[in-house]
Design a protein around this nucleic acid. Structure first.
Lengths: 149, 149
DNA sequence: TCGCGCATGTCAAAATGCTGACATGGAAGA
DNA sequence: TCTTCCATGTCAGCATTTTGACATGCGCGA
């Protein structure tokens, strides 16, 4: 006996997973185009945004925050370092984690790019009924947690 | 004057883009683990699902349907071909597109893997209020279209 | 005190995906 | 008819990401 689909669906495009991937891909594509003008990639921008909010995050922290592996985050940080947008001590005082901080240039670059990214998000949610937005955020969160993160 | 954020948000994790990425990453990770037992990757499974529903799709069709480039889809098809899960003619009768079809082994593999994937989707949307599900699908669609696909 | 577990940073290799480019086949319009 | 434009399939090169592995530093419990 085959497993029934989770909800009545005519075809694959009716599934939540498909829509999720579609929307996610569209957002990623739009952000890629917009950030190219600022000399940033999406992972780079994500790291800058997290660091602006929580200075001193470690490489592993940023990896978790951007949903990639530590190794990938390490490559991103190397790029940001070479671009002079972040600083990272050569050795740690206490533990093993190396706290990352934005440089003035990094903060400036982030603030410049933020406008473009916010405009995209605005365009994305502009057509969604405002009273549904809170529910949408909550549902996305619920689904992520149900999958065990 | 800086561009205001699209909606009141304390931090980055309150943004729709962040939640979207988080949920998408969680789903991708769960599907990866589940499909590994069936010897399939997520892109491979996606192609099989599309082909089961619409036999004869071309490589370019599948690329659009799985939100990757034609080149990436081509690599996926090569893997499926070598695994004996699909067939593809060496030359086209009419146009230039080469119609792809599932082999019996491909259909069998898909049906076996489908149960695991549906279980994940069920787990994902299990905690979401049923009356919100339709709205959620619609909102995701609205956002994707607003970004111009 | 001494292991043991655990998190972190990093190296190497492989897989995956994308950009750029080119040739082919068809269709639409001059 | 012929020419131009577009979609497709494919090759090569590069960037990104992941898997696997290993060494280091800290804290907790025996």
């Amino acid at each position: 006996m085959p497993v029934p689909p989770p909800h009545p669906a005519q075809d694959v495009t009716e599934h939540v997973g498909y829509r999720l991937k579609r929307t996610s891909a569209a957002l990623r594509s739009a952000m890629d185009r917009a950030l190219r003008d600022h000399g940033l990639t999406v992972p780079q921008y994500s790291c800058l945004e997290l660091l602006d909010e929580q200075p001193g995050l470690s490489n592993a922290d940023l990896a978790r925050g951007t949903f990639v592996t530590r190794q990938s985050a390490n490559v991103v940080l190397r790029g940001l370092r070479e671009a002079g947008l972040i600083t990272r001590p050569a050795s740690a005082e206490h533990g093993r984690a190396l706290p990352v901080h934005l440089t003035p240039a990094g903060r400036e670059r982030l603030h410049a790019a933020r406008g473009a990214v916010y405009a995209i998000e605005q365009r994305m949610i502009g057509e969604v009924a405002p009273d549904r937005l809170t529910a949408l955020l909550a549902d996305l969160d619920t689904m992520a947690e149900a999958l065990g993160d």
